[in-house]
């Protein structure tokens, strides 16, 4: 039986077996490829999306569990916080290969949505499980602080 998913404000009927990770529905069925496959075991954060505003790892979130929720991907995320985060990422030239950055940004938006003025420790704790193999961490940390500044201005 098809599953109804609300993604980026649109309803999609998808016909996939229960137990299919949300990640593969988003990527292979809906072709929203900004959400990345990095590890498949919720150990890198590249697949982070928002479910009802909260960052979750879509590779370990199953399609049958998110029916009736509001799912947001990097392509659809739009808010004051999202704009501030993207602006800060651009100002600080955070990206390198860029493959993890959708997930980094979705996590950073999650953090700043619940805490607009995080300390360095709070940033590190919140962002700890988002892996960046290019090691752009220093710029991620600074960009979250910069986004906070933009929001507070």
């Amino acid at each position: 039986m098809p599953t109804s998913l609300n993604i980026n404000g649109q309803t999609h009927m998808v016909d996939v077996p229960d137990g299919t990770p949300l990640l593969w529905v988003i990527r292979d069925e809906l072709k929203l490829t900004g959400t990345k496959f990095g590890c498949g075991v919720a150990a890198c954060g590249a697949c982070t999306v928002h479910v009802d505003g909260e960052p979750v790892r879509s590779c370990q979130t199953y399609v049958e569990d998110v029916e009736g929720t509001e799912i947001t991907t990097i392509e659809g995320v739009a808010s004051e916080v999202a704009s501030a985060v993207k602006q800060a990422w651009n100002e600080l030239n955070v990206v390198q290969c860029g493959y993890c950055q959708s997930g980094q940004i979705m996590s950073a938006i999650g953090l700043l949505s619940e805490n607009r003025t995080p300390t360095v420790d709070e940033i590190e704790n919140y962002m700890w499980s988002n892996v960046c193999r290019c090691a752009t961490y220093q710029r991620i940390r600074t960009a979250v602080q910069r986004a906070s500044e933009i929001l507070e201005a």
Binding site: L32, T33, G34, T35, T73, I74, E75, K86, W89, N90, E91, N93, V94, V95, G98, Q101, S102, I105
Partner: peptide, 13 residues
């Protein structure tokens, strides 16, 4: 600014 900043921060790259 890097020329790939925008596509790599909005999911379009």
């Amino acid at each position: 600014r890097r020329r790939d900043n925008v596509p790599k921060t909005n999911g379009s790259a």
